[in-house]
């Protein structure tokens, strides 16, 4: 069962520079285990030590945020497309400057 996974630039050091990798799994959790076996360390960047999705990581299944589909238990199907993106407030850069003012 092949599922296409799009990897953001900042995580491509784990995929040998590849933008798109393939994995398998019935759930997101299973897929991430499979990916980590092929690309060691990737899972650790997406999942916290407590076992939840990293706050600043968004994962989309067919363009929909997986947090609203069951998070790590989200069911996956053959042919699904997964996109991993860093969380950046709609892409606006203002937030970063704003955050700096408040020392965050």
């Amino acid at each position: 069962m092949a599922i296409e996974v799009r990897v953001p630039t900042i995580l491509r050091s784990y995929t040998g520079g590849s933008k798109i990798v393939e994995g398998a799994g019935d759930t997101l959790s299973g897929l991430l285990d499979d990916l980590d076996a092929k690309h060691s360390g990737l899972k650790g960047r997406l999942i916290t030590p407590e076992g939840g999705l990293h706050r600043f990581v968004n994962i989309y299944v067919n363009d929909e945020d997986v947090r609203f589909l069951g998070a790590l238990d989200a069911k996956l199907n053959d042919g699904d497309s997964i996109t991993i993106l860093p969380a950046v407030a709609g892409g606006a850069l203002g937030f970063a400057a704003a955050a700096a003012f408040f020392g965050r």
């Binding site: 900042i10 990581v57 363009d63 945020d65 947090r67 609203f68 993106l85 860093p86 969380a87 970063a96």
Partner: peptide, 28 residues
């Protein structure tokens, strides 16, 4: 990707106003 301009995941940001429980679904 250029627009994001992040060097690593920890530079990400979720607005303080955001409360995921208000939403049912979220599309990219």
């Amino acid at each position: 990707e250029i627009v994001y301009g992040l060097r690593n995941i920890d530079e990400g940001y979720v607005p303080e106003l955001y409360d995921a429980t208000v939403l049912n679904r979220r599309f990219s």
